[in-house]
């Protein structure tokens, strides 16, 4: 099943969960959920984005975010970041 997520849909769910795209530079949180295509979910897992993984935002620009995850810097666009939920 494919869940299409609007960029602004998952900012806050009230229980402290929010979209990765809303994180500020320097902030560290844990991944809780991914809303998106299964292939992308798998690719994210391969890159270290599994549930509970610690993620830190180290950079940001109009293209998207630079994250530090498992000692690796990964750049991703905002649309994708908004599909990743963090606690």
């Amino acid at each position: 099943m494919i869940t299409i997520v609007n960029e602004n849909q998952y900012h806050l769910k009230g229980d402290g969960t929010m979209a990765l795209s809303m994180m500020a530079i320097g902030e560290t949180r844990r991944i809780s959920e991914f809303r998106g295509k299964p292939e992308m979910k798998q690719h994210l897992q391969n890159l270290g984005f599994q549930k509970g993984a610690e993620i830190k935002v180290v950079g940001e620009n109009p293209s998207g975010l630079i994250l530090l995850i498992k000692d690796v810097r990964i750049a991703l666009n905002r649309g994708l970041a908004s599909m990743i939920l963090v606690d």
């Binding site: 994210l44 890159l47 293209s63 690796v72 810097r73 990964i74 666009n77 994708l80």
Partner: peptide, 9 residues
């Protein structure tokens, strides 16, 4: 398509 890429040192 979405962009995700490792930024090597």
């Amino acid at each position: 398509s979405n962009f995700i890429m490792e930024l090597p040192k």
